[in-house]
Amino acid sequence: MGNQKIRLGIIYGGKSSEHEVSLRTAMSIMQAVDANKYEVTPVYVQLDGAWVTGETLAGQLPDKIEALRLSAKTPKSGSLFAMNEQMDVVFPVVHGPFGEDGTIQGLLELANIPYVGTGVMASAIGMDKWMMKTVFAQAGLPQVKYVGFLRSQWEKGQDDVMDRIERELGYPCFVKPANMGSSVGINKAKNREELKHALEVAAKFDRRLIVEEFVQARELEIGVLGNEELLTSVVGEVIAAKEFYDYEAKYKGAGTELSIPAIVPEHVSKQIADIAKQAFQALDGSGLSRIDFFWDEKNDKLYINEVNTMPGFTPFSMYPMLFQAAGVSYSELIDRLVQLAIERHADKGRNVVDAEELD
Protein backbone atom coordinates (compact mmCIF):
# COMPACT_ATOMS: atom_id res chain seq x y z
CA MET A 1 0.00 0.00 0.00
CA GLY A 2 3.09 2.19 -0.04
CA ASN A 3 2.63 5.62 1.50
CA GLN A 4 -1.11 5.59 0.92
CA LYS A 5 -3.39 5.59 3.89
CA ILE A 6 -4.96 2.29 4.87
CA ARG A 7 -8.70 2.38 4.32
CA LEU A 8 -9.99 0.97 7.61
CA GLY A 9 -13.63 0.04 8.08
CA ILE A 10 -14.94 -0.28 11.64
CA ILE A 11 -18.10 -2.36 12.01
CA TYR A 12 -19.93 -1.80 15.27
CA GLY A 13 -23.34 -1.97 16.93
CA GLY A 14 -25.16 -5.23 16.26
CA LYS A 15 -28.29 -7.09 17.30
CA SER A 16 -27.26 -8.14 20.78
CA SER A 17 -27.51 -6.89 24.34
CA GLU A 18 -23.89 -5.74 23.96
CA HIS A 19 -24.81 -3.08 21.41
CA GLU A 20 -23.82 -0.21 23.70
CA VAL A 21 -20.54 -1.89 24.62
CA SER A 22 -19.72 -2.13 20.91
CA LEU A 23 -20.33 1.60 20.44
CA ARG A 24 -17.90 2.39 23.24
CA THR A 25 -15.29 0.12 21.72
CA ALA A 26 -15.71 1.69 18.28
CA MET A 27 -15.41 5.17 19.74
CA SER A 28 -12.18 4.28 21.53
CA ILE A 29 -10.61 2.83 18.37
CA MET A 30 -11.67 5.75 16.18
CA GLN A 31 -10.17 8.24 18.62
CA ALA A 32 -6.92 6.28 18.86
CA VAL A 33 -6.10 5.61 15.20
CA ASP A 34 -3.44 7.73 13.53
CA ALA A 35 -5.18 9.96 10.98
CA ASN A 36 -1.92 10.08 9.02
CA LYS A 37 -2.05 6.30 8.53
CA TYR A 38 -5.75 5.54 8.20
CA GLU A 39 -8.94 6.68 6.55
CA VAL A 40 -11.72 5.37 8.74
CA THR A 41 -15.16 4.42 7.48
CA PRO A 42 -17.80 3.75 10.15
CA VAL A 43 -20.21 0.89 9.44
CA TYR A 44 -23.07 0.78 11.92
CA VAL A 45 -25.22 -2.31 12.42
CA GLN A 46 -28.46 -1.10 13.96
CA LEU A 47 -30.40 -3.02 16.60
CA ASP A 48 -32.91 -4.01 13.90
CA GLY A 49 -30.07 -5.49 11.82
CA ALA A 50 -29.94 -2.75 9.17
CA TRP A 51 -26.45 -1.77 7.99
CA VAL A 52 -25.58 1.90 7.59
CA THR A 53 -22.29 3.18 6.21
CA GLY A 54 -21.16 6.65 7.19
CA GLU A 55 -18.91 9.12 5.45
CA THR A 56 -15.17 8.42 5.54
CA LEU A 57 -13.51 10.07 8.51
CA ALA A 58 -10.28 11.73 7.46
CA GLY A 59 -8.99 13.42 10.57
CA GLN A 60 -12.37 14.45 12.01
CA LEU A 61 -13.22 11.76 14.51
CA PRO A 62 -16.41 11.67 16.58
CA ASP A 63 -16.15 12.80 20.18
CA LYS A 64 -19.50 11.52 21.44
CA ILE A 65 -21.11 8.08 21.39
CA GLU A 66 -24.31 9.52 19.88
CA ALA A 67 -22.34 10.54 16.79
CA LEU A 68 -21.87 6.84 16.03
CA ARG A 69 -25.60 6.28 15.60
CA LEU A 70 -25.70 7.07 11.91
CA SER A 71 -28.95 8.25 10.36
CA ALA A 72 -31.07 5.27 9.36
CA LYS A 73 -31.17 4.38 5.71
CA THR A 74 -31.32 1.06 3.93
CA PRO A 75 -28.06 0.29 2.12
CA LYS A 76 -28.46 -0.38 -1.57
CA SER A 77 -28.54 -3.99 -2.69
CA GLY A 78 -25.10 -5.62 -2.84
CA SER A 79 -23.38 -2.72 -1.07
CA LEU A 80 -22.04 -4.95 1.73
CA PHE A 81 -20.15 -7.05 -0.76
CA ALA A 82 -18.76 -3.94 -2.43
CA MET A 83 -16.87 -3.10 0.76
CA ASN A 84 -13.79 -4.83 -0.62
CA GLU A 85 -13.58 -2.01 -3.18
CA GLN A 86 -13.97 0.66 -0.51
CA MET A 87 -11.89 -0.73 2.37
CA ASP A 88 -8.50 -2.40 2.66
CA VAL A 89 -9.21 -4.02 6.01
CA VAL A 90 -12.11 -4.17 8.46
CA PHE A 91 -12.03 -4.06 12.26
CA PRO A 92 -15.28 -5.72 13.43
CA VAL A 93 -16.10 -4.80 17.02
CA VAL A 94 -19.64 -6.17 17.20
CA HIS A 95 -19.59 -7.98 20.53
CA GLY A 96 -21.66 -10.99 21.46
CA PRO A 97 -24.07 -12.95 19.22
CA PHE A 98 -24.30 -11.83 15.58
CA GLY A 99 -20.82 -10.36 15.86
CA GLU A 100 -18.00 -12.24 17.51
CA ASP A 101 -19.65 -15.62 16.96
CA GLY A 102 -18.45 -16.09 13.37
CA THR A 103 -21.42 -14.51 11.62
CA ILE A 104 -19.80 -11.24 10.58
CA GLN A 105 -16.53 -13.09 10.01
CA GLY A 106 -18.32 -15.36 7.54
CA LEU A 107 -19.76 -12.36 5.71
CA LEU A 108 -16.31 -10.79 5.43
CA GLU A 109 -14.87 -14.08 4.17
CA LEU A 110 -17.52 -14.18 1.44
CA ALA A 111 -16.79 -10.56 0.57
CA ASN A 112 -13.03 -11.38 0.48
CA ILE A 113 -12.10 -8.57 2.86
CA PRO A 114 -9.21 -8.80 5.35
CA TYR A 115 -10.49 -8.40 8.89
CA VAL A 116 -9.07 -8.11 12.39
CA GLY A 117 -9.50 -11.03 14.76
CA THR A 118 -10.24 -14.71 14.69
CA GLY A 119 -11.83 -16.57 11.80
CA VAL A 120 -15.25 -18.17 11.50
CA MET A 121 -14.51 -21.40 13.36
CA ALA A 122 -12.49 -19.90 16.21
CA SER A 123 -15.03 -17.11 16.67
CA ALA A 124 -17.96 -19.54 16.82
CA ILE A 125 -16.25 -21.87 19.28
CA GLY A 126 -14.96 -18.97 21.35
CA MET A 127 -18.48 -17.58 21.71
CA ASP A 128 -20.11 -20.90 22.65
CA LYS A 129 -18.82 -21.70 26.15
CA TRP A 130 -20.02 -25.30 25.90
CA MET A 131 -18.12 -25.97 22.67
CA MET A 132 -15.13 -24.03 23.96
CA LYS A 133 -14.89 -26.24 27.01
CA THR A 134 -15.21 -29.33 24.83
CA VAL A 135 -12.25 -28.19 22.74
CA PHE A 136 -10.22 -27.29 25.82
CA ALA A 137 -10.94 -30.72 27.31
CA GLN A 138 -9.74 -32.38 24.10
CA ALA A 139 -6.56 -30.29 24.30
CA GLY A 140 -6.01 -31.46 27.88
CA LEU A 141 -6.30 -28.01 29.47
CA PRO A 142 -7.31 -27.79 33.16
CA GLN A 143 -10.90 -26.65 33.79
CA VAL A 144 -13.46 -26.59 36.57
CA LYS A 145 -16.23 -29.20 36.40
CA TYR A 146 -19.26 -28.23 34.33
CA VAL A 147 -22.49 -29.56 32.85
CA GLY A 148 -24.41 -28.35 29.81
CA PHE A 149 -28.13 -28.37 29.03
CA LEU A 150 -30.44 -27.36 26.22
CA ARG A 151 -33.20 -24.90 27.05
CA SER A 152 -35.70 -27.52 25.96
CA GLN A 153 -34.31 -29.95 28.55
CA TRP A 154 -34.76 -27.31 31.24
CA GLU A 155 -38.31 -26.54 30.19
CA LYS A 156 -39.32 -30.20 30.03
CA GLY A 157 -37.71 -31.37 33.25
CA GLN A 158 -36.67 -28.62 35.65
CA ASP A 159 -36.32 -30.90 38.66
CA ASP A 160 -34.22 -33.42 36.71
CA VAL A 161 -31.86 -30.66 35.57
CA MET A 162 -31.48 -29.20 39.05
CA ASP A 163 -31.04 -32.66 40.59
CA ARG A 164 -28.17 -33.38 38.23
CA ILE A 165 -26.50 -30.03 38.97
CA GLU A 166 -26.76 -30.62 42.70
CA ARG A 167 -25.42 -34.15 42.31
CA GLU A 168 -22.48 -33.33 40.03
CA LEU A 169 -21.53 -29.77 41.04
CA GLY A 170 -23.22 -28.76 44.26
CA TYR A 171 -23.48 -25.20 45.59
CA PRO A 172 -22.50 -22.55 44.97
CA CYS A 173 -22.34 -22.74 41.18
CA PHE A 174 -22.42 -20.37 38.22
CA VAL A 175 -25.16 -20.51 35.58
CA LYS A 176 -24.48 -19.01 32.17
CA PRO A 177 -26.02 -18.78 28.71
CA ALA A 178 -23.54 -20.60 26.48
CA ASN A 179 -23.56 -17.91 23.79
CA MET A 180 -23.25 -14.52 25.44
CA GLY A 181 -20.37 -12.27 26.33
CA SER A 182 -19.68 -9.47 28.81
CA SER A 183 -21.09 -11.55 31.70
CA VAL A 184 -24.65 -10.96 30.44
CA GLY A 185 -27.17 -13.42 31.88
CA ILE A 186 -24.74 -14.96 34.38
CA ASN A 187 -25.77 -15.61 37.98
CA LYS A 188 -24.31 -17.33 41.01
CA ALA A 189 -26.60 -19.83 42.74
CA LYS A 190 -26.19 -20.78 46.40
CA ASN A 191 -29.32 -22.91 46.77
CA ARG A 192 -32.06 -24.55 44.72
CA GLU A 193 -34.27 -21.46 44.66
CA GLU A 194 -31.43 -19.30 43.32
CA LEU A 195 -30.48 -22.06 40.88
CA LYS A 196 -33.98 -22.10 39.41
CA HIS A 197 -33.93 -18.32 39.00
CA ALA A 198 -30.46 -18.38 37.42
CA LEU A 199 -31.48 -21.06 34.91
CA GLU A 200 -34.63 -19.10 34.02
CA VAL A 201 -32.54 -15.98 33.38
CA ALA A 202 -29.90 -17.79 31.33
CA ALA A 203 -32.62 -19.48 29.24
CA LYS A 204 -33.86 -16.06 28.14
CA PHE A 205 -30.55 -15.39 26.39
CA ASP A 206 -29.73 -18.72 24.72
CA ARG A 207 -30.99 -22.21 23.93
CA ARG A 208 -27.77 -23.69 25.33
CA LEU A 209 -27.00 -23.35 29.03
CA ILE A 210 -23.88 -24.18 30.99
CA VAL A 211 -23.39 -24.57 34.74
CA GLU A 212 -19.95 -24.54 36.38
CA GLU A 213 -18.74 -25.54 39.81
CA PHE A 214 -17.55 -22.76 42.08
CA VAL A 215 -13.91 -22.66 43.11
CA GLN A 216 -12.46 -20.23 45.62
CA ALA A 217 -9.96 -18.56 43.35
CA ARG A 218 -8.44 -15.35 42.07
CA GLU A 219 -9.51 -14.17 38.60
CA LEU A 220 -6.51 -13.68 36.34
CA GLU A 221 -6.45 -12.60 32.69
CA ILE A 222 -3.90 -12.43 29.90
CA GLY A 223 -3.89 -11.08 26.36
CA VAL A 224 -2.67 -12.97 23.29
CA LEU A 225 -1.59 -11.17 20.12
CA GLY A 226 -0.53 -12.75 16.83
CA ASN A 227 -1.38 -15.32 14.19
CA GLU A 228 1.14 -18.15 14.41
CA GLU A 229 3.92 -16.37 16.30
CA LEU A 230 2.24 -15.39 19.54
CA LEU A 231 2.95 -12.60 21.99
CA THR A 232 1.38 -12.61 25.45
CA SER A 233 0.81 -9.61 27.68
CA VAL A 234 1.44 -9.31 31.37
CA VAL A 235 -1.05 -11.08 33.63
CA GLY A 236 -3.75 -8.94 35.20
CA GLU A 237 -6.11 -9.59 38.06
CA VAL A 238 -9.76 -8.67 38.45
CA ILE A 239 -10.68 -7.85 42.04
CA ALA A 240 -14.45 -7.57 41.89
CA ALA A 241 -16.35 -5.62 44.51
CA LYS A 242 -19.31 -7.88 43.78
CA GLU A 243 -19.34 -11.66 44.01
CA PHE A 244 -18.15 -11.93 40.43
CA TYR A 245 -17.06 -9.75 37.51
CA ASP A 246 -20.48 -8.95 36.00
CA TYR A 247 -21.63 -6.55 33.27
CA GLU A 248 -21.92 -3.56 35.62
CA ALA A 249 -18.41 -4.14 36.93
CA LYS A 250 -16.90 -4.54 33.48
CA TYR A 251 -18.37 -1.51 31.79
CA LYS A 252 -19.45 0.88 34.51
CA GLY A 253 -16.67 0.49 37.03
CA ALA A 254 -18.94 -0.58 39.93
CA GLY A 255 -16.08 -0.60 42.42
CA THR A 256 -14.05 -3.26 40.64
CA GLU A 257 -10.27 -3.01 40.87
CA LEU A 258 -7.84 -4.15 38.21
CA SER A 259 -4.33 -5.08 39.27
CA ILE A 260 -1.89 -4.83 36.35
CA PRO A 261 0.41 -6.64 36.56
CA ALA A 262 -1.11 -9.14 38.95
CA ILE A 263 0.94 -9.92 42.04
CA VAL A 264 1.43 -13.66 41.51
CA PRO A 265 4.45 -15.99 41.57
CA GLU A 266 6.51 -16.14 38.40
CA HIS A 267 5.64 -19.80 37.83
CA VAL A 268 1.94 -18.91 37.78
CA SER A 269 2.45 -16.14 35.20
CA LYS A 270 4.51 -18.48 33.05
CA GLN A 271 1.94 -21.26 33.27
CA ILE A 272 -0.86 -18.86 32.36
CA ALA A 273 1.07 -17.66 29.30
CA ASP A 274 1.77 -21.24 28.21
CA ILE A 275 -1.83 -22.41 28.62
CA ALA A 276 -3.15 -19.26 26.95
CA LYS A 277 -1.07 -19.98 23.85
CA GLN A 278 -2.22 -23.60 23.84
CA ALA A 279 -5.86 -22.51 24.10
CA PHE A 280 -5.43 -19.94 21.32
CA GLN A 281 -3.89 -22.56 19.05
CA ALA A 282 -6.51 -25.18 19.98
CA LEU A 283 -9.18 -22.82 18.64
CA ASP A 284 -7.01 -21.87 15.64
CA GLY A 285 -7.13 -18.29 16.85
CA SER A 286 -5.70 -15.30 15.02
CA GLY A 287 -5.19 -11.64 15.77
CA LEU A 288 -6.24 -11.24 19.37
CA SER A 289 -7.91 -12.87 22.34
CA ARG A 290 -8.16 -12.29 26.06
CA ILE A 291 -8.00 -15.51 28.04
CA ASP A 292 -9.35 -15.75 31.56
CA PHE A 293 -8.21 -18.04 34.36
CA PHE A 294 -9.03 -19.04 37.92
CA TRP A 295 -6.09 -19.52 40.27
CA ASP A 296 -6.76 -21.49 43.44
CA GLU A 297 -3.98 -19.89 45.42
CA LYS A 298 -4.38 -22.16 48.44
CA ASN A 299 -3.83 -25.34 46.41
CA ASP A 300 -1.77 -23.66 43.64
CA LYS A 301 -4.14 -24.95 40.96
CA LEU A 302 -4.84 -23.10 37.73
CA TYR A 303 -8.02 -23.46 35.66
CA ILE A 304 -8.73 -21.92 32.28
CA ASN A 305 -12.13 -20.24 32.34
CA GLU A 306 -12.79 -18.90 28.86
CA VAL A 307 -11.44 -17.09 25.84
CA ASN A 308 -12.85 -13.81 24.54
CA THR A 309 -12.03 -13.53 20.84
CA MET A 310 -13.12 -9.90 20.53
CA PRO A 311 -12.41 -8.23 23.88
CA GLY A 312 -13.61 -4.70 24.35
CA PHE A 313 -11.48 -1.60 23.88
CA THR A 314 -13.39 0.60 26.29
CA PRO A 315 -11.57 2.69 28.92
CA PHE A 316 -12.34 -0.11 31.40
CA SER A 317 -11.14 -2.94 29.16
CA MET A 318 -8.41 -5.28 30.31
CA TYR A 319 -6.94 -6.29 26.94
CA PRO A 320 -5.38 -2.98 25.87
CA MET A 321 -4.28 -2.22 29.42
CA LEU A 322 -2.54 -5.59 29.71
CA PHE A 323 -0.53 -4.87 26.57
CA GLN A 324 0.09 -1.27 27.61
CA ALA A 325 1.81 -2.73 30.68
CA ALA A 326 3.76 -5.03 28.38
CA GLY A 327 5.05 -2.05 26.39
CA VAL A 328 2.58 -2.07 23.51
CA SER A 329 0.66 1.21 23.32
CA TYR A 330 -3.01 1.38 22.34
CA SER A 331 -2.34 2.88 18.90
CA GLU A 332 0.50 0.41 18.27
CA LEU A 333 -1.83 -2.43 19.24
CA ILE A 334 -4.31 -1.31 16.59
CA ASP A 335 -1.50 -1.07 14.00
CA ARG A 336 -0.34 -4.60 14.79
CA LEU A 337 -3.85 -6.02 14.61
CA VAL A 338 -4.45 -4.43 11.23
CA GLN A 339 -1.17 -5.83 9.89
CA LEU A 340 -1.95 -9.28 11.30
CA ALA A 341 -5.30 -9.17 9.50
CA ILE A 342 -3.66 -8.29 6.20
CA GLU A 343 -1.00 -11.00 6.65
CA ARG A 344 -3.57 -13.69 7.46
CA HIS A 345 -5.67 -12.72 4.46
CA ALA A 346 -2.62 -12.92 2.21
CA ASP A 347 -1.77 -16.35 3.62
CA LYS A 348 -5.30 -17.57 2.88
CA GLY A 349 -4.87 -16.25 -0.64
CA ARG A 350 -2.21 -18.91 -1.19
CA ASN A 351 -4.83 -21.66 -0.95
CA VAL A 352 -5.74 -23.39 -4.21
CA VAL A 353 -9.48 -23.05 -4.79
CA ASP A 354 -9.68 -24.79 -8.15
CA ALA A 355 -8.25 -28.33 -8.36
CA GLU A 356 -7.57 -27.81 -12.04
CA GLU A 357 -4.91 -25.26 -11.08
CA LEU A 358 -2.81 -28.19 -9.84
CA ASP A 359 -2.70 -29.76 -13.30
Rank of each mutant, 00 (worst) to 15 (best):
Y303C: 07
L220G: 10
I304V: 15
V264R: 04
G312L: 04
K298M: 06
A254N: 12
Y247V: 08
Q278S: 13
G226Q: 11
A273D: 07
D296A: 13
T256N: 05
L283G: 06
V234Y: 08
V234P: 11
N299T: 12
F294W: 11
S269H: 03
P261E: 02
T314D: 07
E257K: 14
E306P: 02
I239W: 00
V234T: 15
E248T: 02
F280Q: 03
H267G: 02
I263D: 15
A276L: 09
E228F: 06
D274Q: 14
A254I: 01
R290D: 00
F293I: 09
G226R: 10
K277W: 02
A262H: 04
G236C: 14
V268S: 05
S289F: 01
L225T: 05
F313D: 08
I275Q: 11
N299F: 02
E248P: 03
E237N: 07
L225H: 02
F244Y: 14
N305Y: 06
A262W: 01
G312E: 12
K252N: 15
I239H: 12
D246K: 03
K252W: 02
E248W: 02
T232I: 04
T232A: 06
S259F: 01
S289G: 11
Q278E: 15
L230E: 09
D284M: 06
D274K: 13
W295E: 08
L220W: 01
E219W: 07
T232E: 09
I272F: 09
F280W: 00
K298A: 15
G255Y: 13
T314H: 09
F293W: 10
P265R: 09
A273Y: 06
N308T: 09
S286T: 01
V238P: 12
E228C: 03
E306C: 00
A254W: 02
D292Q: 01
G255S: 02
R290E: 10
S286M: 03
T232M: 07
L283V: 09
H267W: 08
I260A: 10
Y245L: 09
A241W: 02
I291Y: 06
G255A: 01
E219A: 01
F294G: 08
S259I: 13
G312T: 10
L258F: 14
L302G: 08
N227G: 06
I272Y: 11
Y245F: 15
F294L: 15
V264W: 04
G285Q: 04
N308D: 13
F244R: 08
D296F: 04
